[in-house]
């Protein structure tokens, strides 16, 4: 921005004396394609910088907090405007695992997220195939009904689910007729994976439906004539060709479940890794009645984020390669 200002204002000054500098500058941008390109480039960098700062600053701040000893954080003696670590205490990253079994909490969230993602992708693929590639009466209303699940706030389902997962007999409301006794699922992954899958399915179904609908019929027909069943064609041809869509749905589901706390904190009756308490539950363990160890919480947050960062980077690679390899010539 700074470099272009003189080149833009100077040549025009003698021609249009009466107009102000802003008017001259906008005139120049409108009439001169080179100048316009320069403006667009400048705007691009400004906006990119803005988003980089807003997204990366929290990570930087986490790092600063993790490296600063807790006593100094509490002292709050930051040198402004550039916030930098007060002291260097990388031991926090080790201490994280010594105070509590944090790796178990990470493991819990990872397992829950992976299981949910697999279930969601498999079921949403089948549903996406049906909604995207077959036509049958009632397709529209059925799709709408599925999407309606995602219109409800998840909290609305919490109490009935908790009732069921604690092993209470399901009773028909008002009539009091007992239906069946569900298995007691609290403190097991089942009590979390089931509601997560149900909650995240609609979005994934929607994404995959649009992607699967775009695969030309000829490719599916070819696969079926070559020797696959409809299911085989789905998993061998349609899904690989929709890799970007599948990756998007999978990453969204994975991240959402990995970060989930509300449901799992309730379905895990105690905040213990043995009761499948999730990652966020682990983070809260650094907070006790009398003290909060901010440096450890920050360090643990960084550790917890790493698996997702790696996953997204890998998936991103997939998305990009899927976009180029899947270029259909039809």
């Amino acid at each position: 921005m700074a470099a272009e200002t003189p080149t833009e204002t100077q040549p025009r000054t003698d021609e249009t004396e009466r107009e102000g500098p802003l008017a001259r500058w906008t005139q120049g941008v409108i009439s001169d394609p080179d100048r316009r390109k320069l403006l667009y480039r400048a705007l691009f960098y400004v906006i990119t910088l803005f988003f980089l700062v807003t997204t990366l600053f929290p990570f930087y701040w986490l790092l600063v907090l993790a490296l600063t000893p807790n006593s100094l954080i509490l002292a709050g003696d930051w040198d402004l405007p550039f916030l930098r670590p007060q002291g260097f205490n990388p031991e926090a990253f080790v201490e994280v695992f010594q105070q509590i079994p944090f790796h178990l909490y990470v493991f819990n969230s990872f397992v829950l997220a992976t299981a949910t993602t697999i279930i969601v992708i498999v079921i949403a693929s089948l549903a996406g195939y049906v909604f995207g590639r077959l036509s049958f009466p009632g397709r529209g209303p059925l799709m709408l009904a599925i999407l309606m699940v995602s219109y409800f706030p998840p909290a609305a389902f919490l109490i009935p689910l908790f009732e069921a997962f604690t092993g209470n007999v399901i009773v028909i409301p008002f009539l009091g007729i007992p239906l069946f006794e569900p298995p007691r699922l609290v403190n097991t992954p089942g009590s979390m994976v089931l509601p997560f899958s149900a909650l995240f399915l609609p979005l994934s179904i929607f994404i995959l439906t649009t992607f699967y609908a775009q695969i030309p019929d000829g490719l599916e027909d070819a696969a079926r004539v070559e020797g696959t069943t409809r299911l085989g064609a789905l998993f061998r041809v349609i899904m690989p060709l929709s890799a970007p869509g599948v990756a998007t749905a999978a990453v969204l589901t994975f991240i959402a479940v990995y970060n989930e706390y509300f449901f799992s904190s309730i379905m895990a009756l105690g905040n213990e890794p043995q009761q499948w308490s999730p990652l966020v539950g682990g983070l809260l363990q650094y907070q006790s009645l009398y003290s909060t160890e901010f440096n450890l919480m920050a360090a643990a947050s960084i550790v917890g984020v790493l698996p997702v960062v790696i996953l997204v980077v890998v998936a991103q690679e997939r998305i990009v390669s899927g976009l180029t390899a899947g270029a259909l010539k039809e």
């Binding site: 070819a222 690989p240 060709l241 899947g326």
Partner: peptide, 11 residues
């Protein structure tokens, strides 16, 4: 079968 739009698997 050979298809009108050829239908080779692009991947």
């Amino acid at each position: 079968m050979v298809f009108q739009n050829i239908a080779l698997f692009p991947h």
